[in-house]
Design a protein around this nucleic acid. Sequence first.
DNA 1: AAGTGGTCTAGACCACGCG
DNA 2: GCGTGGTCTAGACCACTTT
Lengths: 236, 236
Amino acid sequence: MKKTKKYEQIQGYVKKRIQTGKYPVDTYLPSEHDLCNQFDTTRTTVRKALDELLREGFIQKEHGRGSKVLERGKSLGLLTIKGFSGAIDYNVKTVVTEEPKIVEWDPVIPFSLTEEEKKSPCVYFQRVRHINGTPVVLENNWYAKNALKVIGSNEFVEGSFFKTLSQDYLIEIMGAEQELKAKTAGIDVAKKLNIDPEDPILHISVRFRTSRPELNLYGDLYCHTAEYPIRNSYFL
Amino acid sequence: MKKTKKYEQIQGYVKKRIQTGKYPVDTYLPSEHDLCNQFDTTRTTVRKALDELLREGFIQKEHGRGSKVLERGKSLGLLTIKGFSGAIDYNVKTVVTEEPKIVEWDPVIPFSLTEEEKKSPCVYFQRVRHINGTPVVLENNWYAKNALKVIGSNEFVEGSFFKTLSQDYLIEIMGAEQELKAKTAGIDVAKKLNIDPEDPILHISVRFRTSRPELNLYGDLYCHTAEYPIRNSYFL
DNA sequence: AAGTGGTCTAGACCACGCG
DNA sequence: GCGTGGTCTAGACCACTTT
């Protein structure tokens, strides 16, 4: 008795090969015709699989040429700072200022935790993102330890927690909710971002939903937007 | 020589009937089978049309029951303030503080205009959104007059410019780019929002892409987020 | 049992990119 | 001209909801 749909098999197969670099970024996937032969199916089914990957941002279709593998993470909504992605002009560095460790859940999180999360210990870490040597974003992160083990920052792929999840744990971000406020920095944040406590900063609280249903990632970001505003775009 | 694709015909037909209320909210569309007969086509094509409407947020599919018409405008990204949509607890009112009129393009717009836009006169209007009697958002809007005539605020459907575009002009928002900054209010903004010039506010610059390719809507928003933070969510 | 949407097959022809 | 993806046909069977 097979339960997994055929298009999900194909989708999963291609996704994994993209994530593990077997279909490298900027190369083209096998043609729809080839995938049909490989999986012994029809184009309708292969196209359904590729359409899903398109929506998830893994590939881009080019009429007459093929389906090109994209760099992953093209738009995690607000978490994209001007230049963070392309980053040609900018020199971006991420510094882990608090190593992942187990703490109590922080009441600053403005989302209601699930019962499972409340019962679980909480993993916390803090990072500061620098652009051209200037600290720009202070980022607190939490998640339930019962849903994902403690991952040391030495395991982070290119300093990125999300990239680590995607590449080493095959966990994808499925969506997010955010709450935005303009505030004055305050003493603690000002110190870490090297600004005046009276300077206005953008405070973002975010909950990321992942492909692992029991795992939510909570974020608490303080962005010094004066020089590097947050940019994002969305479609459809 | 026909050029329009069949699924676009069906998509357009259904969309128009939804927008004009001939398929009322919360009712079910004709079944895929019926639409096949009506347009003399196959389910593949009808489903493609409905899938597009699904992505655009017009309908919701229910396995075994049918495709239900949804209320439109479920998430225009950041333009959703906590409670603006559901708005049961909140009493939201929009006041037009500057009637639509023709002006020069304002250099505060941080996006580069197209050549057509530069050549066109510019339509400008300003609104203030109130929640429970408190002014919360000051909103400047611009668009190229060559792409859309001047629409007086008396034409606004329920005070909403976007609703007017959708219902009376059949123009849909296709996507947007945004830039966010935390700032201090400044004298002018502070006066209109009735706050202190030193208070932190969230400044959002946005460009909306519409289904009319030559028409972009530019916005410049000042949000007093202290009491009513901006909330949004996105998926996929 | 009847009706709906979800998945899938096995083809066809068209539009686009490239050599 | 060939290979690619885009659209479309004419069916089939399955899963879910309702009567």
